[in-house]
C-alpha cells in the first residue's frame, strides 16, 4: 500500500509533555519537518531551554543539549564554534528568551552567530503556572498580574523580533503564528528560511511564533487560538523583519 503520510523522522516517538490544545506540538513538528526536508537532521544539534519546552531534547530526533534558563544562545554559540558546519538551533520560550536570557539573545544576534532560534511567544510563563512574561499584554491577567498588567507598574511588552532586527549581525527574522492552516504553512516556510540562512552562513536567524497557552489563559483550545489572532497579533504584527537570503523559497 502506498504511504500517503507519515510522521516526520525529525521527531522521536516520545509522547509530548505539552497540555492539550497548546501549539508547541505544531511548532515542534514544523521545526522537525523543516530539518528533515532540508536534509540536515544528521548534522543538527539542538539546544533545549527552560520552560514548557524543557523536554525538547527528548522530542527532536537529533543530537541535543539542555541549557540553563535563558542561556541557550550562549550554549548554541559554544556548539557552533566547535562545529561551524553543523546546523545548530535553540528552541526557547518568551520567559527564557526575553527575560532571563535577554543578554544572551541580544549578543548572539549582535555577533551574527550563525545559529537558528525558534522563539515561542505565548505571553506568559507556562511551565511555572502562568506568571507575567516580558511579552504579557497590557491588561492581561496572570498569576503575578492578577489585576491585569499595568504599564505604570510592569512597563510594556517587548517586541523581540523588531528589536533584534535592528542588529547588523541578523540575517533573517520573521514573526509567524499557527492559529490556522494558512499560518501554519507560512510558519513552516519561515522556519525553513531561517535554517537556510544558517546553511548559507548568513548569520543569526530567528523565527518568533505566536503560540497558545489554553491551560494558563483559562480558555478552550479554540478560544486560545482566537485570542492569539484577536489580542496578540495586533500588538505583535506578523511578517518578515529582516531577510538577507539569496533567494527566498
Amino acid at each position: 500500500m502506498a504511504v500517503v503520510f507519515e510522521k516526520t523522522k525529525g521527531l522521536t516517538d516520545v509522547p509530548f509533555s505539552y497540555c492539550p490544545g497548546c501549539t508547541h506540538g505544531i511548532i515542534h513538528r514544523l521545526v522537525a519537518e523543516a530539518m528533515e526536508e532540508l536534509g540536515v537532521l544528521d548534522k543538527a544539534i539542538g539546544v533545549a531551554s527552560v520552560g514548557c519546552s524543557v523536554f525538547a531534547y527528548e522530542f527532536f530526533n537529533c543530537d541535543m543539549q539542555q541549557a540553563a534558563h535563558g542561556r541557550a544562545p550562549a550554549v548554541a554559540t559554544g556548539i557552533k564554534r566547535v562545529h561551524p558546519d553543523k546546523v545548530v538551533f535553540t528552541y526557547q520560550g518568551d520567559g527564557d528568551l526575553a527575560a532571563i536570557g535577554t543578554a544572551e539573545i541580544v549578543h548572539a544576534a549582535a555577533r551574527g552567530e550563525n545559529i537558528t532560534v525558534i522563539f515561542v511567544n505565548n505571553a506568559n510563563y507556562g511551565m511555572t503556572g502562568g506568571q507575567m512574561a516580558p511579552t504579557t499584554l497590557i491588561g492581561q491577567e496572570t498569576l503575578t498580574t492578577p489585576y491585569g498588567r499595568k504599564a505604570e507598574v510592569n512597563g510594556y511588552p517587548i517586541r523581540m523580533s523588531e528589536m533584534l532586527s535592528t542588529l547588523e549581525g541578523v540575517a533573517y527574522i520573521e514573526r509567524t503564528a499557527v492559529y490556522d492552516v494558512k499560518h501554519v504553512i507560512q510558519a513552516k516556510k519561515a522556519i525553513k528560511n531561517a535554517f537556510l540562512a544558517q546553511i548559507q552562513k548568513k548569520g543569526f536567524s530567528m523565527i518568533e511564533v505566536l503560540s497558545t497557552c489554553p491551560t494558563n489563559w483559562g480558555m478552550t483550545p479554540v478560544e486560545a487560538l482566537k485570542w492569539v489572532k484577536d489580542q496578540m497579533e495586533p500588538y505583535y504584527p506578523l511578517g518578515v523583519y529582516k531577510n538577507t537570503l539569496e533567494e527566498v523559497k
Partner: peptide, 21 residues
C-alpha cells in the same frame, strides 16, 4: 577559537556548549 563573551554567565555557558560538543 577565542571569543569574548558578553558576561561570565554567557562565557561559562559557551564552555558548556563547546565542551558538550
Amino acid at each position: 577559537v577565542f571569543l569574548q563573551a558578553e558576561s561570565e554567565v554567557s562565557a561559562i555557558n559557551m564552555v558548556y556548549g563547546a565542551g558538550g560538543a
